[in-house]
Nucleic acid binder design. Structure first.
Lengths: 215, 215
DNA sequence: GCCGCCATCGACCGATCGGCTGATGTGCCT
DNA sequence: AGGCACATCAGCCGATCGGTCGATGGCGGC
């Protein structure tokens, strides 16, 4: 360890100063933790991590400066000693799986109780995986359905529906346009949501463009 | 005119056979009209138009085979004699303006009464512009707000919101993510919808990708 | 023959969205 | 000083969406 005896050294990464201060205060006032520094973005996080050599990095995923996931992946790639504990606001975050795949040791929600946070950091420092219940349940369902973020091809009908969705067409309009019922349109949508690993039409359109299905 | 005296010759373009049959029957049973042929898509429409030289082309905009708008633009570009009367299902169609800009002589809804259709075709044959009331009102509002389909740049905040929308984030989540209220998120959305000329988040994401704002 | 994928439909429900009206404050440009 | 774009917020409302059951039929592979 880089810090004395049982103390766990931390690097806090979040684009919100308020959050950084909150975390810093929380851990500085608790025994057994040392906050080495802070970073506001992915790149800065990598610099600080290299310079400070923390035991655990508390990291938010969503940062304007850029990829929390990318930073985690980089740390993993270079075999960094630090364990990354993702601290995010919502379990609905679409980057949950990518973050874990990238090498995050744990994934917690910001609204977790203080004690849970402390426990989680200690666990992470020892290399044990820590997941908040909500995230854990999402993970199992993701494993149960590996296609959750996979490349399952869309059927012709599904692509047809998706194309109309991208034009701002409502389900009812799509139904009449395609000579099917609204229920069927919704069925196609639910299916293609699953295949694309998204949860609404906006994200479906985005993913479709990313994969070249549209545009 | 290519047909005898007062008869107006027609080309019917629609991807739905049912619709084509319906239109054909309607016009064949009415005096003063001659249906020269049909086409199921944009390209086929261009071929038939060149071969048959109709007075008026009745064209649906939404066709899987591809661009009704593109076909109209092509006809205009080569200075075709035929007048194009767009016959679509919904006035909400996002291609209304592009179609008219491309050179469509008229724009009608399919649920228009028979007589209105006949009148419209005769008017189109004479080169007079025909718009269904709903479309007309949309047009004036579009003129009143030229940015409706323009390239108004998005503000930084709007792009930020849009990026989250593309990830499937709900308004409430966006609000907390950005430390603003849900009302504000909705305001940003309404504004960027207007700037992009769309009416929902899915279409906004699509347009954003088309214009390189996202991805 | 059975199984899986696809397409089709119905019904219900809560959550969310989008439209509307209107308001406040800030900064920038003229 | 006045105008204008931007960002912020409130409340209300109907329309729409997305989820979750379940069900049918066709088609192709095994």
């Amino acid at each position: 360890m880089s810090s004395d005896e049982s103390s766990i050294s931390l690097l806090i990464v979040d684009d919100h100063p308020v959050v950084r201060d909150g975390l810093r205060g929380m851990f500085e006032s608790a025994p057994g933790f040392v906050v080495l520094g802070e970073a506001a973005g992915g790149e800065e996080a990598l610099e600080r991590a290299a310079a400070l050599d923390p035991d655990v990095i508390l990291m938010d995923l969503r940062m304007p400066g850029g990829g929390g996931v990318a930073a985690i992946a980089h740390l993993t790639r270079i075999g960094a000693r630090a364990k990354v504990l993702v601290l995010t606001t919502y379990d609905t975050d679409s980057d949950t799986l990518p973050a874990i795949e990238a090498g995050a040791t744990g994934y917690l929600l910001k609204d977790a109780p203080r004690d849970e946070l402390f426990t989680a950091v200690r666990a992470a420092a020892e290399g044990r995986t820590v997941l908040s219940p909500a995230v854990a349940s999402r993970l199992v369902s993701a494993v149960r359905t590996p296609k959750a973020h996979g490349n399952e091809p869309l059927s012709a009908r599904e692509r047809e529906v998706l194309a109309l969705v991208a034009k701002g067409t409502s389900n009812r309009e799509i139904a009449r346009e395609l000579f099917i019922s609204e229920a069927t349109v919704k069925t196609h949508l639910t299916h293609l949501y699953a295949k694309l690993g998204v949860k609404d039409r906006a994200a479906a359109v985005a993913t479709a463009y990313e994969r070249g299905i549209l545009g």
